[in-house]
Amino acid sequence: MAFAVFAARRLASMIWVMLFVALFVFSLLYLAPGDAATVIAGEDTSPEDVERIRKGLGLDQPFHQQFLIWLGNILQGDFGISIFSNIPVLELIGQRLDPTISLTLTTIIFSTLVAVPFGVIAAWRSGSLIDRSLMLFSAICFAMPAFVLGYCLILLLSLQLDLFPVQGFVPISDGIGPFLLAITLPTLMLGTVYIVLIARITRATVMDVLNEDYIRTARSRGLSEREVLIRHALPNAAVPIVTVIGLGFALIIGGVVITETVFNIPGIGRLTVDAINKRDYPLIQGIIILTSAVYVIINTIIDILYVYIDPRIRL
């Protein structure tokens, strides 16, 4: 019951954040240089025609009225129509959603599965070979631009060894085998930085936790080191780790542009770049609102997870 109240409260605060985002996005367009009516009308139109178009678009209304109309449309699923392709924004985004969602999920799952055990073992045996190799690996990965890594992977694993396709995306509906084959290299490229990030945070927090009294208590009960780590250390280190994984989702949406370009994947990242290059404002708005919604939802999920992880965090 208390949990339901807490979740409802969190959802309510989500709405506030999204409203704020909507206001911000709308002001962006409102304040943007250039006049949509002039753009739509084209070069050789009379001022009267431009004025008519402006009225037709509701652009002569005061700011708050324009905002409310715009917000109403969005709530009904009408994000407007792309200026350049003349296709509804929502439809355009929908077409590009699958590759990006797939890549984001495979990257997060893959990095978490590799990074957390790696970090835990590095913390447990700090100063050991495995710990020092993590540190070296992380220095290299942070220093190397992602696209360099991507091309190296293509060169080695696709061109030389012929293990994976060079480019492209296969939706999961076309079979799990081809899907995995196509998405492996992009995942490796995008995931490396997150592996390093998550592993280092895991290492640091688990190292702190291993100094706690209850770890000594667990050892004094004769538990094996594996149990000490999995049952006592890792759950207590979970809050920062989960935070970083959540942040990872947000960061990946930025990183996905380069990966999608390198591997020629038709995802949101490339759609964003195209939209910005062409100043396709309705499309940019739509993308910002949808990605912010994703951030906010992930943040809320993380907040709810905290309560689940740690009973001391009050509802």
Binding site: D213, T217, R221, L223, R231, R312
Partner: peptide
Amino acid sequence: RGQQVSMVFQEPMTALNPLL
């Protein structure tokens, strides 16, 4: 440990795992 010889510590709050 735990079977033949066991131990109680100074600070009971920190000696117990807060999440279990």
